[in-house]
Design a protein around this nucleic acid. Structure first.
Length: 464
RNA sequence: GCCCCGAUAGUGUAGUGGCCUAUCAUACGAGCCUGUCGAGCUCGUGACACGGGUUCAAAUCCCGUUCGGGGCGCCA
């Protein structure tokens, strides 16, 4: 058996309770605390490679089962779960502790990893157990209970909900998506930028903005980096991207809208709609293939097959989409906006990505480059019935820009900081924006965008 | 902004005017159990969102309030 002593570390910044719970194997050697932890603690997923060895693991007691004079603990950390076993005769004191220990308490367990009849084929035989923190009972929501919990209740208790391996898997995958897209941009010569989220005026008119008190003036939370990323083209940055929050004050109440979401934006100089559509197709394939490679375990936990997007994304013109709607018996004329029922009727059965191109100028914002008198170089990326992205080649001629602003009924003066950037050398450019949460939702086939958001901000929720 | 719907133990539910001092599961508490893994068995604690009204009688019907869900519009 091992003997333990309590370390006495004189660290005025540390919380007393933490210090008291740090134990050290004899012989005594005073390591700095961080080093101590790194030297001894194993991630639970790594235990499988340490059969026959002494291991130390820390985590949450997901389940505790007392079977006669045996005690089993399912211990969970970020990497996975492992069963730990204790025989009462080997340590009656720990056994009695376990009989009254609450689920989700925080433990450090030291013991020997051994092959066994446990489901994983191995388990940890407990030599010592340190209770770092006890969880209150009962839990606000169950983690392994065989009862469904309403999304509302889960979001109210998100810190516990996020402990579930399925929920954690969504965000591990989202991390891969963001990381692989960022890598792609870096590898392809994009400059990462950060534009202001407090702005003076609406980007495009139309959308409702959140007002912010800005000293003696009123400002707004940014709905999009659109104007700023275009200005960066005039600034000569050539290709830029930004991954940042965007805010929309629309009172929508649906499963695919948030009032704060993460927008992945790009803008490219000397480019056009076709080129940025290719980039978009690339990054979705890169993201999906990265998830397939790096998140096999998470996909399995979520019961999702490998993401298969290795097909050419179709380009459907807006006019053809109208014809397809007409063939489905829907009455809509060329020039009218596409509505949810139309997306459902035409795109509902297409469980794949496709572009809708050449939108009428009248349905797109002022900064979208005309293709001819009627149509524009604006496009959307759709997945089935859901809009994932909108993008376009942009106007670069300041005269066209000003006339578009006027035609849309916008006040040219309030856009002067933006228009000015077009008057002293603005290259042709194009770009798009894609919502990280919507992309995650679509790739993982989630029914509610809130599932793809750690702490969603919707019509009624600003806490937690 | 428009329209529809909902609220019963910690969680998820049954309930359709009297059979409800309210069902079941799970959680929680106590006990038994030496290979459990959704452990099992026994016992126990625990709830009708709030305020008015109708009625001999309300979890149940009506009105209001609060909180929430969904659809549409808008968009990513």
């Amino acid at each position: 058996m091992f003997r333990y002593i309590t370390l006495n570390i004189k660290d005025t910044h540390s919380h007393k309770g933490v210090i008291e719970n740090i134990y050290l194997f004899l012989p005594i050697k005073l390591y700095p605390r961080n080093e101590l932890r790194d030297l001894m603690r194993s991630l639970i997923a790594d235990v499988k490679d340490k059969i026959g060895e002494e291991v130390e693991v820390s985590g949450w007691a997901q389940n505790i089962r007392i079977v006669g004079s045996l005690a089993f603990i399912d211990l969970r950390d970020v990497s996975g779960n492992v069963q730990c076993i204790l025989f009462k005769k080997n340590n009656p004191d720990i056994f009695n502790e376990l009989k009254v220990l609450s689920r989700e308490s925080i433990l450090t367990i030291k013991g020997k990893a051994v092959k066994s009849q446990a489901k994983l084929g191995y388990e940890i035989q407990i030599d010592s157990l340190n209770i770092l923190n006890r969880a209150k009972t009962p839990l606000p929501i169950g983690i392994i209970d065989p009862v469904e919990t309403d999304l509302e209740t889960r979001l109210e208790n998100r810190f516990i909900d996020l402990r579930k391996p399925q929920i954690l898997s969504i965000f591990k995958i989202q991390s891969t998506i963001a990381n692989s897209i960022r890598d792609y941009f870096y590898e392809n010569g994009f400059i990462e930028i950060h534009t202001p989220k407090i702005v003076a005026a609406a980007t495009e008119g139309g959308t409702e903005l959140f007002p912010v008190k800005y000293f003696e003036r009123e400002a707004y939370l940014s709905q999009s980096p659109q104007l700023y990323k275009e200005i960066m083209m005039s600034a000569g940055f050539d290709k830029v991207f930004e991954i940042a929050p965007a805010f929309r004050a629309e009172e929508h109440n649906t499963t695919k809208h948030l009032n704060e979401f993460t927008s992945i934006d790009i803008e490219m100089s000397f480019s056009d709609d076709e080129k940025v559509m290719s980039v978009l197709e690339d990054i979705i394939k890169v993201a999906s293939n990265s998830v397939n490679e790096r998140n096999k375990k998470e996909l399995e936990i979520l019961n999702v097959n490998d993401l298969n997007v290795n097909y050419k994304f179709k380009r459907i013109t807006y006019s053809d989409y109208i014809k397809m709607a007409n063939e489905k018996g829907i009455e809509i004329k060329d020039g009218e906006d596409l509505t949810t029922p139309i997306f459902k009727a035409v795109g509902g059965g297409m469980k794949e990505f496709y572009f809708i191109t050449r939108w009428p100028r009248s349905l797109k914002p002022f900064y979208v480059q005309p293709h001819d008198d009627i149509y524009s170089k604006g496009f959307d990326l759709q997945f089935g019935e859901i809009e994932i992205t909108s993008g376009a080649q942009r106007v670069h001629d300041p005269e066209v820009l000003i006339s578009n602003l006027k035609n849309k009924g916008l006040n040219v003066d309030s856009f002067s900081f933006y228009v000015k950037a077009f008057q002293y050398g603005m290259p042709p450019h194009a770009g798009w924006a894609i919502g990280l949460e919507r992309l995650t939702m679509v790739l993982l086939n989630l029914v509610n965008i809130r599932e793809a958001t750690l702490f969603p901000r919707d019509r009624t929720r600003i806490t937690p």
